[in-house]
């Protein structure tokens, strides 16, 4: 089972929800995929011992000039003008390449002159963490602008068995879509403020287009206004858990201590959160 935790707005407690949910699930094996590759931070709370590191990145074209006839089909196929052909010359701009393979696909039946090589843009790290959770994350190298292909590569490592929690990047762009796609359920972490609701609505719209079932977790639920509850009712999206503002939670967070460790009364709430999602997913599969 794959449960993704996303949030339209950043800073609404997405990682807090994902980490505490993972720590409250008794079933094993359990995997935590931190797909927020621009700033992964779940490891601060789950304290893994990394025992494997691998380069991730974008597959970019390299040309065998003994085969190339400068026909230019690869350049015509490239949506990003990352490969150029004119006047018996060919140029490749690695940093423009999105790794879509279109150049190689069109060249293959013609001259088969293109092979794809990895341009490293991120590093994967993984290892055992607290509570028998296996944590996998990746971090983009400095200056690299494209998280989405890295998330796609990271997600290929998700095993077929057990339970996987996916910590999505914030926002509603292609990187979030890549992270949550193929999930059995998506938790939307939000806060009851006008900004929180505004971005939540965009996230809901995105997830509905993907036909993904979803529920809401409200952080700092006693601050802001009540518009979120009205929206939840109007749109028939369940609020699965409300976490009121508590200075003790903020203090624990600032020290890298998960809520369920600092305030054990929350463990039962996260157990219930998991059980309600599990029940929903199993019902849907029947």
């Amino acid at each position: 089972m794959r449960i993704a935790v996303a949030s339209g707005k950043g800073g609404t407690g997405k990682t807090t929800v994902a980490v505490n949910l993972a720590l409250s699930i008794e079933k094993k094996p359990i995997y935590y995929f931190d797909c927020d590759v621009e700033e992964p931070n779940a490891h601060i709370f789950l304290k893994p011992e990394f025992n494997n590191t691998e380069p991730l990145g974008i597959m970019v074209p390299r040309v065998d000039f003994t085969r190339c006839d400068y026909c230019g089909m690869c350049a015509d196929a490239c949506e990003y003008s990352a490969i150029l052909v004119a006047r018996k010359k060919l140029m490749i701009f690695d940093e423009l390449c999105h790794g879509c393979y279109a150049c190689q696909i069109v060249c293959k039946p013609h001259k088969d002159a293109i092979t794809m090589v990895l341009r490293e843009t991120a590093k994967l790290e993984e290892g055992p963490a607290k509570s028998d959770i296996h944590l996998v994350h990746a971090k983009l190298n400095l200056g690299e602008p494209m998280p989405t292909p890295v998330i796609a590569q990271l997600k290929k490592r998700i095993p077929g068995e057990g339970i996987t929690i996916i910590d999505s990047p914030p926002g509603n762009s292609d990187s979030m879509v890549e992270a949550v796609i193929d999930s059995d359920f998506v938790i939307l972490a939000t806060e009851p403020t006008p900004f929180g609701l505004h971005d939540l609505k965009i996230a809901v719209d995105t997830l509905r287009r993907m036909n993904l079932p979803m529920g809401i977790v409200v952080n700092r639920s006693d601050l802001g206004d009540r518009e979120l509850w009205k929206y939840s009712e109007d749109e028939n999206i369940p609020i699965l858990l409300e976490i009121p503002f508590d200075r003790k939670i903020a203090e624990a967070y600032s020290k890298g201590v998960p809520v369920v460790e600092a305030l054990p009364q929350y463990r039962e709430k996260f157990v219930q959160l998991f059980e309600s999602i599990e029940e929903f997913v199993n019902k849907g599969m029947e």
Binding site: G72, Y80, S81, L84, A86, R87, F93, L96
Partner: peptide, 19 residues
């Protein structure tokens, strides 16, 4: 055709002018 590309507009326009 490159005018509205999110990226690669510069390389694309140069290529088209050369072509």
């Amino acid at each position: 055709q490159n005018a509205n590309k999110t990226s690669g507009a510069g390389t694309g326009a140069s290529q088209d002018l050369i072509k």
